[in-house]
Amino acid sequence: VDNKFNKEQQNAFYEILHLPNLNEEQRNAFIQSLKDDPSQSANLLAEAKKLNDAQA
């Protein structure tokens, strides 16, 4: 993981990586967004979790 991520951002990265119901395309999009703007990690994680739950 890129060293410019802080602890919260790293946690978001790993959580998104391991959400079971996202397809690869969705997962990659969230990860790319996280890399583009790490400050949005909490929002991105919340969105990813919502999508993950919706696809459960």
Rank of each mutant, 00 (worst) to 15 (best):
P38A: 06
Q9M: 03
K50T: 12
E15W: 09
K49N: 10
K49M: 09
E25W: 03
P38C: 03
L45M: 06
L44R: 05
L17S: 12
E25V: 09
H18F: 08
I31E: 04
K50H: 10
D53P: 01
F13R: 06
L19D: 01
K35N: 12
S33R: 14
H18M: 05
K4Y: 08
N52E: 03
N43K: 12
D53W: 08
L17K: 08
E47Y: 06
A56P: 12
Q40P: 02
Q26V: 07
A56Y: 04
D37I: 07
D37T: 10
L45Q: 04
L17Q: 11
L22C: 00
A42D: 09
A48Y: 02
L19V: 01
E25G: 10
Q40C: 07
K50V: 14
L45I: 03
K35Q: 11
N43W: 06
E47G: 10
K7I: 07
Q10R: 05
S39P: 10
D2W: 00
N28D: 09
P38V: 05
L34D: 00
K35G: 08
Q55H: 08
Q9G: 03
N43S: 13
A54V: 11
N28S: 14
S41D: 03
E47Q: 07
V1Q: 07
N21R: 05
D37H: 12
D53V: 05
Q10F: 12
L51T: 12
N21H: 05
K49W: 07
D2C: 04
N21W: 14
S33P: 02
L34F: 12
A42I: 08
N43P: 03
N3C: 12
Q40T: 10
E25T: 06
H18I: 09
Q9Y: 08
L17G: 07
L45W: 04
S39Q: 05
D36E: 07
F13G: 03
E25S: 11
K35D: 04
Y14Q: 14
A12P: 01
N3W: 00
E25Y: 12
F5W: 07
N3K: 05
D53S: 10
D36C: 13
E8K: 02
N6P: 13
R27D: 00
A46F: 10
E47F: 08
S39D: 13
E24L: 10
L51I: 11
K49Q: 11
I16S: 01
A42C: 15
Q40V: 11
Q40L: 12
D36H: 06
E47A: 09
N28K: 08
A56R: 08
D36L: 09
F5V: 15
N23V: 05
R27A: 07
L51C: 11
E24H: 13
V1P: 09
K35A: 04
N52T: 03
L44K: 06
N3E: 11
A42V: 13
L17V: 09
F5I: 15
A29H: 08
I16D: 00
S41Y: 15
N23A: 02
E8G: 04
N21Q: 04
N28A: 10
N21G: 08
L51N: 05
N3M: 01
Q32F: 05
N23P: 06
E8R: 01
L44M: 07
N23W: 13
E47M: 05
N52V: 04
S33G: 10
L17A: 03
N23I: 11
H18P: 01
E8V: 02
N3A: 04
K50I: 08
D37W: 07
F13V: 05
A46Q: 11
D53K: 14
L17T: 09
F5R: 14
D2I: 02
F5K: 10
A42N: 13
K35E: 07
N28R: 12
F30A: 06
E15G: 05
N52Q: 04
H18E: 11
A48K: 00
A54W: 12
D36G: 09
Q55M: 12
A29K: 13
S33K: 09
A54I: 12
P38K: 05
N43D: 09
F13C: 04
F5P: 15
A12Y: 03
E24G: 13
L44F: 07
K4W: 15
Q9C: 10
S41H: 15
Q55L: 14
N3T: 11
A42P: 08
K4D: 15
N52L: 01
A12H: 09
Q26Y: 04
K4G: 15
E24S: 13
L44Q: 06
A54Y: 15
L51E: 05
I31N: 03
S41F: 15
A29N: 13
E25L: 12
I16M: 09
N28W: 10
Y14M: 14
N21K: 12
K49R: 09
E25I: 14
E8W: 02
E24W: 11
D36K: 04
K35S: 07
A46H: 13
A29E: 10
E15R: 05
Y14N: 15
A56Q: 11
S41N: 03
N43V: 11
D53R: 09
D2Q: 01
V1M: 11
V1D: 04
Q26R: 03
N43T: 06
A12W: 03
R27K: 12
P38S: 05
E15M: 06
L17I: 09
S41I: 12
S33Y: 02
K7P: 15
A42G: 07
N11P: 01
K50W: 14
A54K: 15
Y14F: 12
K50F: 14
Q55V: 11
N3R: 03
I16W: 00
N11I: 13
E24D: 11
N11T: 06
R27L: 07
Q40R: 14
I31M: 09
E24N: 13
A29Q: 09
P20Y: 05
N11E: 15
A42W: 08
N43L: 02
N28I: 15
E47S: 07
L22K: 00
L17Y: 12
E8A: 04
L17P: 01
H18T: 10
F5G: 11
S33A: 08
N52I: 02
N6Y: 02
L19S: 02
D36I: 11
Q9A: 09
Q55A: 13
A29C: 10
L45H: 02
N21C: 14
N11L: 15
F13E: 03
Q26S: 08
F13Y: 13
F5C: 15
A48Q: 00
Q10G: 03
E15P: 01
L51V: 10
E24V: 12
Q9S: 06
F5H: 15
A54Q: 13
E47C: 14
N6M: 03
N3L: 01
L44S: 04
D53E: 11
D36W: 08
D2T: 01
L34G: 01
L22G: 00
N52H: 03
E15D: 05
Y14E: 15
Q55T: 08
Q9I: 08
A29S: 11
Q40H: 11
K50L: 15
F13W: 13
N6I: 04
Q40S: 11
D36F: 14
F13Q: 05
N52W: 01
A12M: 04
Q9P: 01
A48D: 00
R27C: 07
E15S: 05
E8C: 03
A42F: 10
P20D: 12
E24K: 11
N43M: 13
L17M: 13
A29L: 02
Y14H: 15
E15N: 04
Q55G: 10
E25F: 10
N21T: 07
K7V: 05
A46M: 13
F5Q: 10
A12Q: 03
A48W: 00
K4N: 15
D37V: 10
E47W: 07
K49A: 10
E24C: 14
E25Q: 12
V1G: 15
L17C: 12
K7N: 13
V1C: 11
L22Y: 00
S39L: 13
L44N: 02
S33T: 13
K4R: 08
I31R: 02
N28F: 13
A56I: 14
F30C: 06
E25H: 12
L34V: 11
I16V: 06
Q55S: 15
K35H: 07
D37M: 08
K4L: 09
Q32A: 14
